[in-house]
Amino acid sequence: MVCVIMKKLAIIPAYNEAESIIYTVKDIQKNAPDFDYIIINDRSKDNTYNLCIEAGLNILNLPLNLGIGGAVQTGYWYALENGYDIAVQFDGDGQHDAKYLGIMADTLIQKKANMVIGSRFIEKEGYQSSGIRRIGIRFFTVLIYLLTGEKITDPTSGFRMCDRKIIEMFADGYPKDYPEPETTTKALRNKFKVDEIPVKMRAREGGKSSISLKKSIYYMIKVPLAIIIERMR
């Protein structure tokens, strides 16, 4: 096999992640040393930014709070500008484990997939999210299956690796909030190959989930609509 050196980037969106951001970067440097990383500070209210600058970390500093989608998209844009072949979304709160990055990259390359999702629900190990959320996630699995004919066990997973083509697509257009199920549908609709590998996620180290109970109603209305409209494009 011809060994081409691929440039790989971990995109770490961070909103108020001062407690866990250093740990997250160390995790990548130790367990996935062939990955570069970029932190996107989504105008945190805590000292995430100062902490990162003092530690000399690679950071993009958004002057306005754009929400998770806008932050992640900045990362894809950065990946595009800097010629990365592979980019992976990696949460800044310690939920994701860098030891999977190597396996994800291997899967992406060997199975010639355009996107690889780290799924909690293939081996059903590690942090499984609450019961009601699992029902919601299952709903999206069924909805995406009905609309695209592909089975994605964890369409809400924020742990996703993309190749150059998807990087280009996401840099160009990405939803502002709750983007995962919608963008997974977008990738499938554009006939990209999406694969999943089993991962264990941890319960959060610090920070708060971006989906509070209050916002779940908005989530359950907006995201299914977004998926259906995405299918109509």
Partner: peptide, 10 residues
Amino acid sequence: LTQKIALIEK
């Protein structure tokens, strides 16, 4: 614009 500013600032 916000994204571009962040990229340029870096």
